[in-house]
Design a protein around this nucleic acid. Structure first.
Length: 646
RNA sequence: GCCGAGGUAGCUCAGGGGUAGAGCAAUUCACUCGUAAUGAAUAGGUCAGGGGUUCAAAUCCCCUCCUCGGCUCCA
């Protein structure tokens, strides 16, 4: 009896019973059949070579889509495991999924892999791919699978812990064989290993079984796979591009900041140029905070341990905090990992009325968190950093409007720095939490409502909230498509409770305010690091430490160069004169290498005419004889911070 | 913290038991130049730090610190 297959365009075709996904694809076109890697029938993944079990809506998954690539990568992971098991006696394998841009496989081996091993494994993989071994799917009972993988402890553990719901056929699991190799796997896979066009192993890393430090540590091999050599090359090129933008390289190169070893890991010093850019960022932060109705406060770097007991930090966050310091009268003090308790102290310094709510307190507060040595990563993960932190105290009734305002603020802030794509995560109650679950629910709903009001799509991250409350995290996509977490907005009913803060309501009865924690940049350091990578070190004019470099052609033009610099300075622009003894070409090269937005070359003709040769960063050619006034007008317009008129 | 790879001049890196090297940067001198590198000379090092083996250690061994790629966590 033929089966009816509905194609994505809505048309229905008939195929004889026993037809495979490949048959369906081939009937549509030979090119489609060639590009196909798997099919989805009513949403269920099937191998291309598997007879379709029933009719339904079909989707041919091709190799040039993200879904298609993940099939490809998953098959590549199998080949990797096959190669490793071939080459290393006694090796056993754990899991090997496709991930963004690639795949990995975890192994337990007697000796850790070396870079030379990687080459050896890669050549073995090439042989397996050249042999074009078919992947053959086989379903079997759990007992049989346990028997099959009797030598492989991790596979046995997976089989034993598979949830019944994860396996469509109840108590069955599936394995895929190619040649002598067999792996437990849900599939789907490519028809054969020969379909792997472009595979490359990238690096070796340690990884714990199931990501838990209590479990044995395995050896992980990362690789990448693409549908063509060309795509692989493009990917490797993207990796190089990311490396070129690395803020840890650009920071010292552009003389912005450094991490002197003498100070300790994760601690940064800002050089004058970096300090200037940072100040401009902070100025903008203050400007927007004021515009959105925040007031500025300041608080100390440490406080008595008691305060951190009351706040719950010592109970819930102790491992992120530095140890106590003994001070007067045996009191221990702790360096602050967060600013919130201090802002509560300010709230609590006198009686509060409902009439003064919402009370919005902001601070660029330096905090210190003990990050484990292995996770430090330049400015993106430091041990000392500055939060553009705020705490808003409001009534329950004000919460929805306040959250909407905070979200608006955050998006304004991010747009001002050139980010245009945003994604939000709504993180809900974690396992370790304080407070009443009903209040958590209320807070989570309020956050979701704010996202809906802003028309933002979001993903729910179950259990990712802070210990004191749920939160919205806003992520941005940078210039090369990477996703960074920036801002966070958190609702908190708990700290007000713990500190017992109140306000007098209209009927003079004491009420408890709600609190909103919000960091717009997140950490200024991290934000700065992301900006460096986003702009590849070439800051827009309003943030550039030097906005114009003036290059005299010969020494006799230095006086004129200085007078031009003065004109620019009078217009509020940051200009420098390069009076070094280098050639014109070299001085220009230096200015471009420093990513200066504008280079102005001045020679005899310019001295006479009041002009300059004008070269913009990124432009291929310069313009000669441009009037200095015209240049000043153009640069001064660009130099205005976003939302500030000249 | 754990697994792996590293740390040699300001930067990028060579050298692997027997006198510390290169390119770029820096300094000085000459050149005064019209849009991405003028030439020459000079200076610069507890070879991350400490301990050990050795007649002799940058080199081999141990410990510590720091960096990088991951695991985990987060801003």
């Amino acid at each position: 009896m033929p089966i009816e297959i509905r194609l994505p365009d809505g048309s229905v075709v008939e195929h004889p019973e026993g037809s495979t996904g490949l048959d369906v694809a081939a009937a549509i076109g030979s090119r489609l059949a060639k590009a196909a890697v798997a099919v989805r029938l009513d949403g269920e993944w099937l191998d291309l070579s598997r007879p379709l079990p029933h009719g339904g809506s079909i989707e041919i998954v091709t190799e040039n889509t993200e879904d298609g690539r993940s099939v490809l990568r998953h098959s590549a992971a199998h080949v990797l495991a096959q190669a490793v098991l071939d080459l290393y006696e006694g090796a056993t394998f754990a899991i090997g999924p496709a991930i963004a841009d690639g795949f990995y496989y975890d192994f337990k081996v007697d000796q850790p892999f070396t870079p030379e091993d990687l080459e050896r494994i890669e050549s073995r993989m090439a042989e397996i791919i050249a042999a074009d071994q078919p992947f053959i799917r086989e379903a079997m009972g759990r007992d049989q699978a346990l028997e099959l993988f009797s030598d492989h402890e991790f596979k046995r553990e997976i089989i034993e812990t598979v949830e019944p719901g994860e396996v469509p056929a109840g108590d069955e699991v599936t394995v895929y064989r190619n040649n002598g190799f067999v792996d437990l796997c849900r599939g789907p896979h490519l028809p054969s290993t020969g379909r792997l066009e472009a595979v490359k192993l990238l690096r070796i890393a340690g990884a714990y079984w199931r990501g838990d430090e209590a479990n044995p540590q395995l050896q992980r091999i990362y690789g990448t796979a693409w549908e063509s050599k060309k795509e692989l090359e493009a990917y490797l090129h993207r990796l190089e591009e990311a490396e070129r933008r690395d803020h840890r390289r650009l920071g010292p190169e552009l003389d912005l900041f450094s991490f002197p070893k003498e100070m300790g890991a994760g601690l940064v010093v800002w050089h004058p140029k970096g300090g200037l850019v940072r100040k401009l960022i902070e100025d903008h932060s203050r400007r927007l905070h004021e515009r959105y109705g925040f007031e500025f406060v300041f608080s100390p770097h440490l406080a008595k341990e008691d305060l951190w007991n009351t706040s719950g930090h010592l109970q819930w966050y102790a491992e992120g905090m530095y140890p106590g310091m003994e001070m007067d009268h045996g009191d221990a003090y702790r360096v602050k990992p967060m600013n919130c308790p201090f802002h509560i102290m300010i709230y609590r310094s006198r009686g509060r009325s409902y009439r003064e709510l919402p009370l919005r307190l902001g601070e660029l507060g330096g905090v210190y968190r003990y990050e484990r040595s292995g996770v430090l990563h330049g400015l993106l993960r430091a041990r000392g950093f500055t939060q553009d932190d705020s705490h808003t105290f409001c009534t329950r009734g004000q919460l929805a409007d306040e959250l909407a305002m905070h979200l608006d603020f955050v998006l304004r802030w991010l747009k001002d720095f050139g980010f245009t794509e945003f994604e939000a995560d709504l993180s809900t109650r974690p396992d370790k939490y304080v407070g009443d679950p009903a209040q958590w629910g209320e807070a989570e709903e309020a956050l979701a409502a704010a996202l809906d009001r802003a028309g933002m799509e979001y993903r729910v991250a179950e259990g990712d909230g802070a210990f004191y409350g749920p939160k919205i995290d806003v992520h941005v996509k940078d210039a090369i498509g990477r996703r960074w977490q920036m801002s966070t907005i958190q609702v908190d009913f708990n700290l007000p409770e713990r500190f017992g803060i109140e306000y007098a309501g209209p009927d003079n009865a004491p009420e408890r305010p709600a609190m909103i924690h919000c960091a717009k940049a997140g950490s200024i350091e991290r934000f700065f690091g992301v900006l460096v990578e986003h702009y590849a070190g070439a800051f827009p004019t309003w943030l550039a430490p030097v906005q114009a470099m003036i290059v005299p052609v010969a020494d006799r033009h230095i006086d004129y160069a200085r007078s031009v610099a003065e004109q620019l300075a009078n217009a509020g622009l940051r200009a420098e004169v390069d009076h070094s003894g280098e050639t014109v070409g070299e001085k220009i090269r230096r200015a471009i290498t420093a990513k200066t937005p504008a280079v102005m070359v001045v020679g005899d003709r310019d001295v006479e005419a009041g002009t300059a040769g004008y070269r913009r960063y990124g432009a291929d050619e310069e313009r000669r004889g441009v009037s200095v006034d015209e240049i000043i007008t153009e640069l001064a317009a660009e130099a205005q911070p976003p939302g500030v008129s000249a």
